[in-house]
């Protein structure tokens, strides 16, 4: 497969890979690196593309595995720690501005979710995949996907209501 051809296949979903990576790794730089790595890996595997009937789903699975590995590794653990320190010690003014912007609450609430729920919510509500695709990508039973999704959505709602009330009171 030629490079141009490869890019044509990959281009439509590279943003999706990046967003999933960012959802899991939180930091933009980390996510960019991860996406880059995934694309390079895909390119090196492109001779076996025909074997996979759905390259997009395959790439998503790769991204998921790659990011989870990253999270498990010590290196990413350190980065994560740095990041959360930064968030907590961020300037007061910035916190106030962010607090007003309740849309960013949702992002922070999603950061607190367990990884599996994070991924399901990301793939369903942001990327709009259907349940079969998600269960293929995450290697989960379709019912498990639904349960995780329902839980994630309810948690987000609950926390959002909590924060909302706190903001008013």
């Amino acid at each position: 497969m030629q490079q141009v051809e490869f890019l044509n296949v990959v281009m439509p979903f590279k943003d999706k890979l990046f967003r999933l990576a960012k959802r899991l790794l939180v930091s933009t730089e980390e996510a960019e690196d991860a996406t880059q790595e995934i694309l390079i890996k895909l390119w090196s595997k492109n001779s076996s593309f025909e074997k996979y009937k759905n390259v997009e789903a395959f790439a998503m699975t790769m991204t998921k595995n790659f990011c989870l590995d990253r999270l498990k590794s010590k290196q990413a653990g350190n980065l994560k720690l740095v990041h959360s320190n930064y968030q907590e010690k961020g300037s007061l003014l910035q916190n106030q501005i962010e607090a007003k912007d309740s849309v960013s609450w949702v992002e922070r609430i999603m950061d607190e979710l367990p990884e599996q729920q994070k991924m399901v919510l990301q793939l369903r509500d942001v990327e709009e995949y259907d349940y079969d695709e998600i269960s293929e990508m995450l290697d989960m039973q379709p019912t498990a996907v639904r349960v995780a999704l329902s839980r994630a959505r309810k948690t987000v709602r609950e926390k959002l209501v909590q924060k909302h009330n706190y903001g008013i009171g």
Binding site: K14, S104, E107
Partner: peptide, 25 residues
């Protein structure tokens, strides 16, 4: 519920802007 759905719509806008991979590939 509005914030939730608004967030999902905005989250979808995020793009992978790094151009490097094309050359590094």
């Amino acid at each position: 519920y509005a914030t939730m759905f608004q967030y999902f719509s905005t989250a979808k806008e995020e793009k992978f802007t790094k151009q490097v991979p094309l050359e590094t590939i």
